[in-house]
Structure formats: C-alpha cells, structure tokens
C-alpha cells in the first residue's frame, strides 16, 4: 500500500529588527529614495551594509544614490513577463538584485540603462521598488552621489512572512499504524533483537537499529507512567484546562504512548490503570485522535517498581 500523504503548510511570520543601516535604507525606500553605504576605501554598496564584506571594517557612512543603473546580468523567467537582474546603480560599486519589466527578453543587454519604478503604496521594504524598467537617455542624469544621510536612530521592524507548502508522506510503518487507528486498532511492533515492543509501530528499533517485525494489535488497557496537568490555555487545545496529558504504557508494550486522560486531574496517579475510549466508529480516521482519551479502569494501581524502567 502507498504511504499516507497529506497537504501541509508552514506559515511563519518573522519580525526582523533592521538596525540603523538597513532601517534607514527601508525608510528611504518608503520615501521613494535609495541609499548606499560607503566603505572605508570609498566603495559604495547598495543594499547598504553596516560592514564591508571584504574585511569587516565598519562602513563610514550612508549616502543617497541614483535610481538609475546598468544591467550586469539577468535571467528571464519562465512565467513570461519579467527577468531577475543584477543592477549596478550609477556611482556605486555593487549590484542590486531586482525584477526587470517593460522589455522583451531579446532587448536585455549588458550595460542597459535601467531606472527604478517605485510602487504607489510603499511600506518600507525592498518591494517598495516595484521593478526596474529600461531608462530613456534623458532619464539618466547625474551619476554623482547625493548628500550624506544619517543612520536611523529609532528601531524599525520588518515583517517578513515565510509560507511554504508541502505534501508530507508518512513512512510505510507509520502509515500502517495510522491505518490501524482508522480501524480501531492500536498497532505496535517487536524488535527481533531486543524483543521489546514499540508503540506506535516504528520502522526500526530505536535501540538496536534493526528493522522491526510486522505490526501487531496491542491491548487497549495500560498504566500511566507519568503525567502532567495542563492548566494554561493555548491555541489548538482540544479540552478545556485543567486536563491531563499522560504517558501510557499499554499492556504488552515496552514504550509508552502519549495521550489525554479524562476525569478529575487531582485523581490521576502514576501507576493508575486506564483504558482507551474511542470516538464513535464513524469518526475514526488515520490519527491518534480516533481515541478520544483514556479513562481510569478502577483496577488496583501497579506498583512503582513495575513502571520505573519506562519513565
């Protein structure tokens, strides 16, 4: 059978503190201006840098630069209507990566004059330059650098989202385990070398690094080895606090399974006997959530010595 697969997305919204140099660069972009940094040897870098990447020496200051420049190299993109290019702004000594639009692929050439086109709505980010377009000869004016600009004193934070889409796949053995959950079965598997039974079933013994035997169905009763009472609220919670999250050693297994325990948290004990309470069969799926939670069986507790090895 094919491994189980599911769509998955990560969505991190980083807030990056910019500091005095990049902070000023972004503040100037918001105003429709571009600045560079001057190295101690006189070279001017755009984007500006706090330090000269050649020797790490501190930059000697910031300076306004032209919005026009020359194309150094480019790559036309298959989406059709733009290229990425490295553009050396007039009077500067490094190149800026940006999008080039308004020209055909065949028109691009080394040394081509380009001019920054600013976005109408600017928010202090590199996209405030919407793109570069071919510049008319009358648009390329002085290549002299402008006046010095002071570093930014207030802190400026840039929100940079990172969103990536995946289609994740469980491995063969994990797929077996999850399919078991959809049938109302808890599957573990035995190591042929140390004979311990792991649950959930895993591809290899985590101790011996040999492939495990075929999964087997385990009992639904077990013993709480250790637990924690969750008293705070956080996003994604299934139960209202306070509730118990416990390691449960199923009968016949050698590794514990993490799950929820119902009932009054103050009554939960190490060594307490519990059994799985499944959702209605119609709600079973390839997930540990097919088990609603574990509940106390009322049997006598197991002595600590019998679970000590599994903590």
């Amino acid at each position: 059978m094919k491994p189980l697969s599911a769509p998955y997305q990560i969505d991190y919204h980083y807030k990056r503190s910019l500091g005095p140099v990049l902070g000023r660069f972004m503040a100037e972009l918001e105003q429709g201006q571009i600045i560079g940094s001057r190295c101690q040897d006189g070279r001017v870098l755009v984007p500006p840098s706090e330090f000269d990447p050649r020797d790490g020496s501190e930059s000697s200051g910031l300076v306004r630069v032209a919005a026009t420049g020359r194309l150094e190299t480019w790559s036309w993109q298959p989406q059709g209507d733009f290229a990425f290019g490295l553009i050396r702004l007039d009077g500067t000594d490094s190149a800026l990566l940006h999008r080039i639009q308004g020209a055909q692929a065949s028109e691009l050439h080394q040394g081509m004059g380009l001019i920054a086109v600013f976005a109408d709505e600017r928010r202090g980010q590199i996209d405030d330059i919407d793109h570069f377009r071919p510049a008319g000869t009358d648009e390329i004016t002085a290549t002299d650098l402008g006046e010095p600009v002071p570093p930014l004193t207030e802190d400026r934070v840039l929100k940079i989202p990172l969103v990536l889409d995946y289609q994740i796949r469980a491995g063969a053995t994990t797929s077996d385990f999850l399919r078991g959950m959809a049938r109302g079965e808890i599957l573990g598997n035995r190591c042929p070398q140390c004979h311990k039974v792991q649950v959930p079933a895993r591809p290899a013994c985590t101790t011996c690094s040999v492939l495990c035997e075929s999964p087997q169905i385990l009992d639904e009763t077990g013993t709480i080895t250790t637990f924690s009472i969750i008293r705070i609220e956080f996003p994604g919670q299934r139960l209202a606090p306070p509730y118990v999250c416990a390691w449960i050693l199923l009968d016949g297994a050698d590794t514990a399974l993490l799950h929820l325990v119902s009932g009054d948290p103050e009554n939960v004990r190490m060594g307490q006997r519990v059994r799985a309470v499944w959702k209605a069969e119609a709600d079973w799926g390839p997930t540990l959530e097919s088990i609603r939670y574990f509940e106390a069986t009322g049997e006598p507790d197991r002595p600590f010595e019998e679970i000590a090895e599994h903590l």
Binding site: Y14, F25, P47, S75, Q77, F84, G85, L97, I126, L158
Partner: peptide, 17 residues
C-alpha cells in the same frame, strides 16, 4: 532575508543569473 528573499528569486533564477 531583508533585500533578497522577499523578491522570491528561486534557485533556478539565481543559477540563471
């Protein structure tokens, strides 16, 4: 992450440059 990644050039685009 400040001036390059937000423009989203992919690996092929940069190798193309």
């Amino acid at each position: 992450p400040y001036t390059t990644a937000p423009l989203t050039p992919d690996a092929n685009a940069l190798a193309g440059l």
